[in-house]
């Protein structure tokens, strides 16, 4: 049955004491790899009646990125390390001190040959999965915000053919990189994702938290939060901006009516029928948009803020890594 955003329901929920920050689902398997605030990657068999996770150690910070690529599971954490683990044995095969600051995301290329990591050193590094060697070091984001505070590089995404990689930072700067040359090819700005409050609170909130290319690679979707009045809270409207990235042009902005907070993850339906974002404020949210980005199809609350989600290739199932919770949602119910 095809995935349908109007037919979805939660089928499983696993309560946790830790904060689940990243998740990857293994194709044709019931295993999930979940990055946690306890510095471990937890292997969870969601089909088991009683989930008994296996904890994989090696990090010393929040695990904010997990990606399955070829024969490896690669995790990245706030300790700046990337750890390659063998998918069969689950043993650590290789560890790199990849960044000087927090790693914010780890993504695998669609062909499983490359891994990209982004961190608060404002560098994106692209790695050959098999050899572990760095292929590209991509520098195109400022270390400091215009107000002289540390910036952050939150998100990256490969195009569906693996030819391009997009990166997005705190102040809303986006760069698209050519993966064969490692050169910047396009840049865009999405300043609406970043709120600098110069008067009331004198600091900032927001940033580009998610990126996704459309299935035909014509559109780059950018997720975050719109302008915020009171930056003590995640009270801005969840925000999606679509770019015709080849023309370096913003083509559509949608700010959600019901959903407040960040969109921390975006994914397109493989047939370009719709795209889904997740995140929220203290409450979690799932938002479905039409692919023209002109409207939201559906906005639903989920129990807790969603830090990341993983989806099956057909998008008929979503795995939500949330605050103290892992939940599974079927979209063909």
């Amino acid at each position: 049955m095809p995935a349908d955003p109007f037919k979805f329901k939660q089928t499983k929920e696993i309560s946790r004491k830790d904060i689940l920050l990243s998740v990857a689902c293994e194709p044709e398997s019931t295993r999930l790899f979940v990055g946690s605030s306890d510095s471990n990657v937890h292997v969870i068999d969601f089909a088991a009646e009683k989930a008994e996770p296996i904890a994989l150690d090696g990090h010393s910070g929040y695990v904010t990125g997990v990606a399955i690529s070829g024969a490896f599971i690669v995790s990245g954490a706030y300790d700046g390390k990337l750890i390659w683990r063998d998918r069969k044995t689950l043993k650590a095969d290789r560890t790199h001190k990849a960044h000087d600051k927090w790693i914010r995301a780890v993504e695998a290329s669609p062909d499983g040959k490359l891994i990209a990591s982004v961190a608060d050193d404002m560098i994106c590094r692209v790695w050959d999965v098999t050899s572990g060697k760095m292929k590209h070091e991509l520098r195109g984001h400022e270390l400091m915000t215009p107000s002289h505070f540390n910036s952050m590089l939150y998100a990256c995404a490969f195009s569906t053919d693996g030819s391009y990689l997009a990166t997005g930072d705190k102040v809303g700067h986006i760069v698209v990189w050519d993966m064969s040359s490692g050169k910047s090819v396009k840049t865009m700005e999405s300043p609406g994702m970043y709120t600098w409050d110069p008067r009331a609170r004198i600091h900032s909130i927001g940033g580009i938290r998610s990126l996704a290319f459309s299935p035909d690679n014509s559109v780059l979707a950018v997720g975050g939060m719109g302008k915020v009045g009171n930056i003590d809270h995640l009270e801005g409207k969840a925000r999606l901006e679509l770019f015709d990235w080849r023309a370096e042009k913003s083509v559509q902005v949608v700010e959600c009516d019901k959903t407040k907070g960040l969109i921390t993850r975006l994914a397109f339906h493989p047939k370009n029928d719709w795209l889904v974002g997740a995140g929220g404020d203290s409450k979690g949210a799932l938002v479905f948009f039409d692919t023209a980005g002109k409207k939201t199809l559906r906005e639903e609350s989920v129990a807790a803020h969603v830090h990341k989600f993983a989806a099956t290739d057909s998008m008929d199932r979503l795995y939500l890594a949330s605050h103290n919770k892992l939940s599974i949602w079927e979209l063909s119910a």
Binding site: F149, N150, M152, H203, S204, I205, D232, E235
Partner: peptide, 11 residues
Amino acid sequence: HGQNFETHQEM
């Protein structure tokens, strides 16, 4: 109240 770690990373 929200994003404590980002705020403290700045301040």
